[in-house]
């Protein structure tokens, strides 16, 4: 097992956000987590990253307990969060020295992988949102993380860019064999990318359904099997919505 997450309870003040969420994922899996807004899926990812440590439970990566953020749990934020004063290659290198030929070579390889060749010397202000997010991905990959955590990374992008970046991400996942956990609110995205799919429900955030996705890559959104899975996820959503209304809470 590589990533093992046990959250007994996570609360903000009196409001319980996450309740009894336990799961393990194997090395090389691509887990997508989907759920309505307010179900605590981003919080769960921050706990996995070590960015949030105020909860009861534990997170282990390869048997090592995660107590603070670090490079072995790469994290991609919703916004790219590049350093505006550094160029693309400097941003990817960040605290590593670009004059080191090894670093320089790996940085260049990653720039090629995320398809940004020719933009090495550009500043973030000169890049589009999709390009910036790819730089952020390359920055995380350079540190060779054991697991890459992505918090709605393509949420702010237009449909075309999003589709493109999803393919880039699958490409990277297949080449680098990194375990990935991606949080999203886009059902298509969760089925298109994941090998495992976790559906969360809100108030409090609980694991509603765990769904393995055994479609082969490259996947096709218009496939009947794809549409069938989509149907299943939607059904689960409907159940969670009913329960939400039954408990008298709004979304």
């Amino acid at each position: 097992m590589t990533v093992s997450i046990h959250v007994n309870e996570k609360a903000f003040g009196r409001a319980v956000v996450l309740d009894d969420i336990h799961f393990d994922i194997q090395k090389g899996e691509f887990l997508t987590i989907i759920g309505p807004s307010g179900c605590g899926k981003s919080t769960l990812l921050k706990i996995a990253a070590g960015l949030d440590t105020e909860y009861s439970g534990s997170v282990e990566i390869n048997g090592r307990e995660v107590t603070r953020p670090g490079i072995s749990q790469g994290f991609i934020f919703q916004e790219h969060r590049l350093f505006p004063w550094l160029t693309v290659e400097q941003n990817i290198a960040a605290d590593l020295n670009l004059r080191d030929p090894n670093v320089k070579k790996t940085v260049q390889e990653l720039i090629d992988i995320v398809r940004l060749t020719g933009n090495e010397k550009a500043y973030p202000a000169e890049l589009s949102g999709g390009m910036s997010q790819r730089v952020a991905i390359a920055r995380a990959l350079l540190r060779e993380p054991e697991v890459l955590l992505l918090d709605e990374p393509f949420g702010a992008l237009d449909a075309f860019t999003r589709k493109h970046l999803q393919d880039v991400l699958i490409d990277i996942w297949q080449k680098k064999k990194i375990t990935m956990i991606l949080v999203t609110h886009d059902i298509d995205e969760s089925i298109y990318l994941g090998t495992q799919l976790a559906i969360l429900r809100a108030n409090p955030g609980r694991l509603q359904k765990w769904l393995p996705i055994e479609l082969l890559f490259p996947r096709n959104r218009t496939d009947t099997s794809f549409q069938y899975l989509r149907q299943k996820v939607l059904e689960e959503f409907e159940k969670t919505e009913h329960s939400v209304y039954a408990e008298g809470a709004g979304i």
Partner: peptide, 13 residues
């Protein structure tokens, strides 16, 4: 402050 989070994730000295 968001960039400080990045610095923590990247383990800046």
């Amino acid at each position: 402050a968001k960039l400080f989070d990045v610095a923590r994730v990247l383990e800046f000295s």
